[in-house]
């Protein structure tokens, strides 16, 4: 077994300051294996999304350590964070599509972050990716003309188009019907099996738990269970 994709140790995290200081994460220690689909579960406010954003270098690590793809995130300079983020894929709960870009252009943004490249090839890859998530008939639609599920699928395409090493997904199936949700998770699972892509997913969706390699449950900022599935 190679080095873990993510290694978290003695991680604490706080929000606010002074009297309003509130601890959200308490002494979390875990390792995420490469190529596996790991699900973070727990009730609202349990710290799942905070942990996800800390591991995905979307939030400063205040205390403890997070090693992502071998790089320490705590006190990492912005340039290192930028280059690390380019090796990741993010699927946000609110999809966060750019409202003035078409579906294809939104997905292109996932490619152009790596450089200018061949625009025709990039466009072709973006369209292909949208086809894989079932949106080949919505290529030039703006987000405002797409349903919630379609927007989420564009966000998935944007996250996966550049073949990221780790995908962080926050409730990626929340806006999808059962079949679409299943398709997306299956795609992530397949990427893990074929390309070694690691996926860390926050979800409340019980329908997809059976596909996870591992389920970590948090409560009040602490890991209360960590189950590996076969």
């Amino acid at each position: 077994m190679g080095a873990p994709a993510i290694s978290v140790s003695q991680l604490d995290h706080f929000f606010g300051s002074g009297e309003a200081l509130k601890q959200a994460i308490f002494d979390v220690n875990l390792e995420v294996e490469r190529g596996k689909l790991t699900i973070l579960m727990g009730p609202s406010g349990s710290g799942k999304t905070t942990l996800l954003t800390l591991m995905g270098c979307l939030r400063d690590v205040q205390s403890g350590s997070v090693l992502l793809l071998g790089d320490e995130l705590r006190e990492a300079p912005e340039t290192r964070l930028v280059s690390l983020r380019r090796r990741l894929g993010f699927i946000f709960q609110a999809h966060n599509l750019h409202e003035s870009l078409t579906a294809t252009q939104n997905v292109l943004m996932g490619l152009q972050v790596h450089g200018k490249g061949d625009r025709t090839k990039q466009r072709k890859a973006a369209r292909h990716m949208l086809g894989l998530v079932g949106l080949s008939d919505r290529l030039d639609y703006l987000p405002s003309s797409l349903s919630g599920g379609q927007k989420q699928r564009v966000a998935v395409a944007r996250a996966l188009v550049s073949n990221p090493e780790v995908v962080f997904a926050d409730e990626p199936t929340a806006a999808l019907d059962k079949e679409s949700g299943h398709t997306v998770v299956k795609m992530l699972k397949t990427l893990g099996e074929t390309r070694g892509t690691t996926t860390v997913m926050v979800t409340h969706d019980n329908r997809i738990l059976e596909m996870a390699d591992r389920i970590i449950t948090l409560e009040e900022g602490r890991v209360i269970s960590d189950e590996h599935q076969t």
């Binding site: 979307l58 912005e78 930028v82 280059s83 380019r86 993010f90 946000f92 966060n96």
Partner: peptide
């Protein structure tokens, strides 16, 4: 007005 979208780009690895 576009801060949320810019934040998404930042999360994707776009720099300042």
């Amino acid at each position: 007005n576009h801060l949320r979208e810019y934040a998404t780009f930042k999360a994707m690895g776009y720099d300042q």
